[in-house]
Simulated assay, not measured.
Amino acid sequence: MSLLEVTNLGISFGGLRAVDEFNLSIEQGELYGLIGPNGAGKTTVFNMLTGIYKPTDGKIFLDGKDVTGKKTADINKAGVARTFQNIRLFGDQSVLDNVKIGLHNSFEYGTATGIFRLPKFFATEKEMDKKALEILSVFGLDSSADILASNLPYGKQRELEIARALATNPKLLLLDEPAAGMNPNETRDLMNTIALIRKEFGVTILLIEHDMKLVSGICEKLTVLNFGRVLAQGKTSDVLNDPEVIKAYLGE
């Protein structure tokens, strides 16, 4: 059984059909790419997968469970986490606290415990600090745990956002243009980071990306969207050499 199975997914905004008959199957552990021209519907697909948008039709199954149209928090608890094209960190909070925000799916204490600072509060906070530092160490960010997130270099802010998403313990990680705004050196570091994430966390990854060097270097399979519909699907090398994909997207 596929970890993610999407069948005939579609959404309309008024009279505009933004995505139509979108199908996708991703196996456990795969690194899968979703590409296409600007406005093709890629982020709209991500928004449906994460509950920001409710599909007009179609189904989304995560690990065999129907999550179609569920609330974002419920989908996150079911095992889907994401990053955004525009970084959405809590810039006025520390690097450590940004990751701890993602840990609240795994560590909980009652309102009274938090208000009155009961012993369980301190024990839980200590456990969360330890876990957050473990995650940050994968990215080499543990030494920056106490600085404000906004003071990190751009590439490290990208990595922190991924770290925070991983703190929710996802089965499926959605990366929305993780290389956007990066220089070549940062992009190369990102490729290494994503490879490390798969090794350390065993997470399945679906990413949207325009950097074809990154896509061809790390993605095992691709789906190409064009005007809200699937143009091509399959192994990365096959898709990138498809004449229709070259004509519609690569412009060669």
Rank of each mutant, 00 (worst) to 15 (best):
K42T: 01
L24F: 08
F61V: 02
R117V: 12
K100P: 10
E209N: 00
I11N: 10
K59D: 14
L231C: 05
P153M: 10
A112L: 15
N86R: 13
K71P: 02
G181I: 13
L160P: 10
A163H: 05
L225D: 03
R188I: 05
I246Q: 06
I75F: 11
V230M: 10
F139S: 12
P55N: 11
A165D: 09
K71D: 15
M128W: 00
K235T: 09
V6F: 10
V239L: 05
P170H: 03
K126M: 00
P178T: 08
I75A: 08
L103A: 11
M1G: 13
N105K: 14
L118Q: 14
I147C: 12
L4E: 12
D142W: 11
L222V: 00
I11Y: 09
R164D: 03
V239C: 02
G58E: 14
P178Y: 12
D129Y: 03
A248W: 04
F46E: 06
A163W: 06
G110I: 12
E108Y: 10
V203L: 10
A179Q: 08
V80M: 07
I246H: 03
T83P: 03
I87E: 11
I194D: 02
T44L: 07
D189Q: 14
G15P: 11
P119D: 10
L152T: 04
D57L: 13
L9C: 11
V67K: 07
K65G: 06
I11E: 09
G181N: 12
I162W: 04
I52N: 08
V67P: 07
A132L: 12
P37C: 06
I135C: 10
I205L: 00
K130A: 15
I208M: 08
V95S: 09
E244K: 13
A163Y: 03
N226E: 15
A179F: 07
D74I: 15
E200D: 07
T43P: 04
L3K: 00
I147K: 15
T187C: 11
C219N: 06
D129P: 05
L206Q: 03
N185S: 14
R198G: 01
P37I: 08
T204P: 01
D129W: 02
K221Q: 07
E252G: 11
G102P: 11
P170F: 04
K42N: 03
K221I: 01
V215N: 01
P119Q: 11
D176L: 05
V224Q: 00
L31C: 14
K247Y: 06
A149R: 05
N241Y: 13
G234Y: 08
L3G: 00
V95F: 11
F46D: 08
K130W: 03
G10P: 14
L152G: 00
E108R: 14
Q93W: 04
K131A: 11
L160I: 09
Q28H: 15
N169T: 13
Q157A: 04
L62F: 08
M212P: 02
A180M: 07
E125N: 00
G64C: 05
L118S: 13
T193C: 03
I52M: 12
N241C: 09
Q157T: 06
L3P: 02
P184A: 01
D176A: 09
E108G: 09
M212D: 01
R164T: 02
D176V: 04
